[in-house]
Structures are given as C-alpha cells and as structure tokens.
Design a protein around this nucleic acid. Structure first.
Length: 220
DNA sequence: TTGTGTTTTACGACCTCC
DNA sequence: GGAGGTCGTAAAACACAA
C-alpha cells in the first residue's frame, strides 16, 4: 500500500469514527472514484495539518492562511533572494513556526506571482512601444503623402519651365539659366537637386544645404 | 445572503542539476 | 537518487456586487 493509500485509509477510518467532524471527506472520496483525471486529485491533508498544530478548534482540515507577520518576514526573505536553500528554508520555518514544506511552497508560489508580474510589466512596456511605433508610422505615412504631392507639383513646374526654355532656346543660341528660389511652403526645393545629367525627377538627389534649384540650359 | 471572480495555499507531475 | 525548480491545477479563503 503506497503512502497515498495509507493516508486515504486512515482518513476514511477517521471520518467513520468522527462523522460529525470529518463528513466532508466522504463525498470527496466518492468523487475520487471517478475516471482518473490527468493529474491525481490532491490528497487530503487533515492528518498532517492536525499534526502541525492547527488551531484545533474545528478538528477539520482547513487551509490556513499565513499571518501578516509570517508573510511580511517571508516577503523580506524573498526580497533578499528568490531561491531558497535548505538551510534558509529550515531557519525561516523555525523562526516563523511553519513547516519547511510550507516555506518552500510559499516561495514557489511567490516566484510564480513574481514571474507573472514581470511578464505583465513587459507586456505593458511592449504595448506602449508598439502604440508609439504605430503613431509614428501614421505620421510618416502622412509625411510621405505630403512629399509625394510636392514632388508631383515640382515635376509639373519643371515641365512647364522646360517647355518655356525650349521655346526661347529655339529662338536664341544664347544659353539660359533659370533659377527657382526655394519656397518655404514647398521645402522640396530645399531638399533635392536635379542631377547634372538631366532627365526626370528620378535624377533628383538629396542635398541638405541646397537653397535653390538651378536648371541649366542645353548650351551652358 | 448568495453567487461569482480573485487570491492564496497546497499538491502532483515532470524536469534539471549535483 | 534526492533536492529543489517550474507548471498546471484544486480548493479554501476572501472580496464584492446584486
């Protein structure tokens, strides 16, 4: 007979001897005869708790909440070190009047809570970062749209000027240079230049300090 | 008071390390 | 192989709205 069976057997005897006190045990046992779940049901701890010196007022197993002082001391200890060596566990158990097993379990649960909290915090941080990135993306999208609009306008302006230059250069062999002043409302002209090799705006190149756009005639 | 959701205590299964 | 870890879960204890 394994330990669980011994425990269960003893508890069954106790429940039969003291039905008024241990009746809750009986239906629980009946439940345990159902098809086995993946994990075994927790064994009843009444005997163990009675031995531990439960308050004795009820005589029935009750899950005992640790006192505020016990929790406070455990929290302090947890703050020092999340892991629990045997020596520290035994010392804490002695100091707090607990079973070393209770101290170990408390630390296990505390680590789990700490981990959950940490994951929650990380999630919140990542969520905030993500939200900021989305906002920035929207801003950049609208900036791109705006720049495309300016690019389109600039292209049209270039075509118009090119046509004008074509018209005048056919009348005169003198080279012509046309300057287009930078426009504050259209920063495009301050940001890009047309390459020397001519062509469309695919020949534009970026220039930080350019303040104007000069388009050179074919005879310059 | 009671139903319901959350927190706390405890355990079993499984894993890793020495 | 034993001690101690995580993970998932049960169940008592607790909080609180209806």
């Amino acid at each position: 007979m394994n330990n669980q069976n011994v425990d269960d057997h003893n508890l069954l005897l106790i429940s039969q001897l003291y039905p008024s006190v241990y009746t809750p045990f009986v239906p629980q046992q009946a439940e345990e005869s159902k098809p086995a779940p993946r994990r075994r049901r927790r064994k009843n701890k009444s005997a163990a708790v009675a031995e531990e010196g439960g308050d004795g007022s009820s005589g029935w197993f009750r899950k005992r909440k640790l006192t505020d002082e016990q929790v406070r001391m455990l929290e302090i200890s947890f703050g020092d070190e999340h892991k629990l060596e045997t020596e520290r566990k035994d010392r804490l158990a002695l100091e707090l009047g607990l079973d070393p097993r209770q101290v170990a379990v408390w630390f296990q649960n505390r680590r789990a809570r700490w981990k959950n909290k940490r994951l929650e915090d990380e999630y919140t941080k990542l969520k905030n970062v993500h939200e900021n990135v989305v906002v920035e993306k929207c801003r950049l999208d609208s900036e791109v749209l705006n720049l495309k609009e300016q690019l389109y306008e600039a292209e049209r302006e270039i075509q118009r000027l090119a046509q004008r230059v074509e018209g005048t250069s056919s009348n005169s062999p003198i080279s012509l240079s046309i300057s287009v002043e930078a426009n504050h409302t259209t920063p495009f002209f301050g940001d890009y230049e047309i390459g020397d090799d001519g062509g469309g705006y695919e020949n534009l190149f970026y220039s930080q300090d350019y303040i104007g756009l000069e388009w050179m005639g074919p005879f310059s």
